[in-house]
C-alpha cells in the first residue's frame, strides 16, 4: 500500500511556515471513544498538528497519576486496539491529521505485531510508539511497521548517552521524541533549565524533527519549548481536564481551549523570534 507519510509531510509544511507542531496526547476512550473522536476533530480545529492516541494498558509504568487515571478510565470503557482502529478508520473520512498510537508493548504484542502494522495502516494510523520497547527489543514490531509505511517513534531521555542517541536516531523515522524530564509523565511547574541545550545537542546526531514532551502543561511552557524544538507534546494536562469535566461536562470545549491557547502562544513565540532575527 502506498502510504502518504503524513508525519513527514506535516513537519515539512510546518517548517515552511516557521511553526512548531503541537501534539496533544489523549487517552482513547476517556471518557468514551465517541468523545475521543470529537476531541480529535476539535483539537485539529484549535491548532493541533498531530495527535497521539493513548492505548490503554492495565499497568502504565511510565505514567504519573493523571495519565494513570485517564488510562484506567479508557480501559473501563473498552478502548481496545480493535475499537481504536475502527474509530481512526471513521476519522479518516473527516481528517488527514497524522495520528500516532502511544502505548505499552503488551497490548500490541497480543494484537500481533504484524497484524497491528497491517490493520493500523489500513485504518490510517501514521505512527506507533511503545514506551517500554527500547531499540534492543523493537525488531518484531519495527519490521512490519516499516513494511507498512508506519513510523515507529522512539523516545530519547535526558539519561541517554550521546552515542546511544546516535544509534537510536539512525533507526528512527517520523520524528524523535525527547523526554524533557528524568521521570514519568505528569505536569511539572518547572522544566529543566538545560532543555534547550539537550535538544541542541540532539541536532548534531539527527536531521529528523525533534519533539519534546513529559511535563509540559501551560501555554508559557509550550511557547518556551517551541522556541527550540520542532514539536511540543501535551498530555497529563489534558488527562486532568478530562477528569475534571468528566463524561457529563464539556471535555471537548475545555481541552480545545487549552490546546488553542498553547498553539497561539507557540505561534507568537516563533514570530517574535523571527522578528528579533530580522531586526538584527
Amino acid at each position: 500500500m502506498a502510504h502518504p507519510k503524513r508525519i513527514a509531510r506535516k513537519f515539512r509544511e510546518l517548517r515552511a511556515r516557521n511553526e512548531a507542531a503541537l501534539i496533544p496526547f489523549i487517552v482513547a476512550g476517556d471518557p468514551d471513544l465517541q468523545t475521543t473522536r470529537n476531541l480529535v476533530l476539535e483539537l485539529e480545529r484549535r491548532g493541533a498538528d498531530l495527535i497521539e492516541l493513548g492505548v490503554p494498558f492495565s499497568d502504565p509504568m511510565a505514567d504519573g497519576p493523571a495519565n494513570q487515571r485517564a488510562i484506567a478510565r479508557g480501559l473501563k470503557t473498552g478502548a481496545s486496539i480493535a475499537a481504536i482502529l475502527a474509530m481512526v478508520s471513521e476519522l479518516r473520512k473527516e481528517t488527514d491529521i497524522p495520528i500516532i498510537l502511544f502505548g505499552y508493548f503488551n497490548p500490541y504484542m497480543h494484537y500481533g505485531c504484524a497484524e497491528l502494522a497491517r490493520d493500523a495502516a489500513i485504518a490510517g494510523v501514521d505512527g506507533v510508539l511503545a514506551v517500554d520497547l527500547p531499540p534492543e527489543e523493537s525488531a518484531p514490531l519495527a519490521k512490519p511497521l516499516r513494511a507498512n509505511g508506519i513510523d515507529l517513534i522512539y523516545l530519547l531521555a535526558p539519561t541517554t548517552p550521546i552515542e546511544r542517541n546516535r544509534k537510536i536516531a539512525a533507526r528512527a523515522s517520523g520524528f524523535l521524541y525527547y523526554v524533557s524530564v528524568t521521570g514519568v509523565t505528569g505536569a511539572r511547574t518547572h522544566l529543566p533549565d538545560d532543555l534547550a541545550e539537550h535538544v541542541g545537542a540532539l541536532r548534531a546526531v539527527t536531521a529528523l524533527p525533534i519533539g519534546v514532551g513529559f511535563g509540559i502543561s501551560t501555554p508559557e511552557q509550550a511557547a518556551r519549548v517551541a522556541s527550540f524544538a520542532d514539536a511540543v507534546v501535551v498530555g497529563s494536562a489534558i488527562s486532568a481536564l478530562a477528569e475534571r469535566h468528566g463524561p457529563t461536562g464539556d471535555v471537548v470545549g475545555a481541552v480545545g481551549d487549552l490546546v488553542g491557547a498553547m498553539k497561539n502562544a507557540m505561534r507568537e513565540e516563533r514570530s517574535a523570534q523571527a522578528n528579533a532575527g530580522a531586526s538584527k
Binding site: 509504568m61 511510565a62 508493548f105 514506551v131 517500554d132 520497547l133 527500547p134 534492543e136 527489543e137 522512539y154 523516545l155 530519547l156 531521555a157 535526558p158 539519561t159 541517554t160 548517552p161 546511544r164 537510536i168 523526554v179 528524568t182 521521570g183
Partner: peptide, 21 residues
C-alpha cells in the same frame, strides 16, 4: 548477552532506565 532465557527475559523499560541497566 541481551538477557534472554530462550524466549523470555530481555529489557523492556522506558528509555530513561536503559542507561541505568
Amino acid at each position: 548477552t541481551h538477557g534472554h532465557f530462550g524466549d523470555f527475559g530481555g529489557k523492556f523499560v522506558a528509555e530513561t532506565l536503559m542507561p541505568a541497566l
